[in-house]
């Protein structure tokens, strides 16, 4: 009996992520969902610029590497080219909520029929731990060495809350991957986001509170706790928009 098997949608290439980084968990959840929905053969993923830039090597389906922040625009082109294909982006917080804010907001406003997996780890991982648009007030990073001073550099961007003000998007949810229960909920949300696309419902974004032990300067275990203690209070988990549920067609 097989107890633990690699999803088919993942390749055999070893992941390059740091020990305790939850990027790997989210990759796996996405791959499991794609397996379960039987859509690998028609899925096209868009990798960002950030720690997950090499996601194109890890997924078994067709992949595109986009410029920093532009994945939703690239996904728009791919989806418009063949609406039958299943198109998703996988983006970090610097990518999605700073340099790519316009692309994010407008693909949501257009209700582009794509799925967005948004990794919020409150930091720029790949470039070595600079302040992100989602870094918490007071958070120490390489470019906020005295802690994020909101008078100097403003407040974090709450992506789900912000996008929920738009009429466009179909589904917006924030999840976390720091314990078994949260991981189960994260998978459910990711699955719904892909099902929405299959059913032609439009733009779904899943914000995943994720860890970066390396740049937070914490052990993997402490990093998971930090999500509970610091991130979730500032970024409450839950569904921020579900248009189908609002309309009652479920």
């Amino acid at each position: 009996m097989v107890i633990f098997d690699k999803p088919h949608a993942l390749t055999d290439v070893p992941l390059h992520y740091c020990p305790g980084c939850t990027h790997g968990i989210v990759h796996r959840l996405v791959a499991e969902v794609i397996d379960e929905l039987g859509i690998e053969g028609k899925t096209i993923g868009i990798a960002p610029v950030g720690c997950s830039v090499m996601a194109y090597d890890y997924f078994n389906f067709d992949m595109i590497e986009a410029a920093h922040g532009r994945a939703p625009a690239v996904a728009t082109g791919v989806k418009r080219s063949d609406p039958e294909n299943i198109v998703f982006t996988y983006q970090g917080d610097g990518d999605l909520a700073s340099i790519g804010t316009a692309e994010t907001v407008h693909s949501a406003a257009r209700n582009e029929n794509i799925t967005v997996i948004f990794i919020n780890n409150a930091i720029y991982g790949m470039t070595g731990g600079q302040m992100a648009p989602t870094s918490l007030p007071g958070q120490v990073t390489q470019t906020s060495p005295y802690g994020r001073d909101v008078n100097l550099c403003g407040y974090p961007v709450k992506v789900c809350e912000m996008l929920s003000q738009l009429d466009g998007p179909e589904y917006l949810a924030r999840v976390a991957v720091n314990n078994v229960k949260n991981i189960k909920n994260a998978k459910k949300a990711i699955k719904k986001a892909f099902e929405n696309q299959i059913n032609g419902k439009g733009f779904s974004l899943i914000e995943v509170l994720s860890s970066c032990p390396t740049n937070w300067g914490l052990t993997p275990q402490k990093a998971l706790q930090w999500i509970d203690e610091k991130m979730i209070p500032y970024y409450p988990l839950g569904v921020y928009k579900d248009r189908s549920a609002e309309k009652g067609d479920e």
């Binding site: 595109i64 532009r70 625009a73 690239v74 418009r80 080219s81």
Partner: peptide, 11 residues
């Protein structure tokens, strides 16, 4: 910027 990246997607 978005337009050229949409082009990148279709291309």
């Amino acid at each position: 910027i978005a337009a050229i990246n949409m082009v990148y997607g279709v291309a």
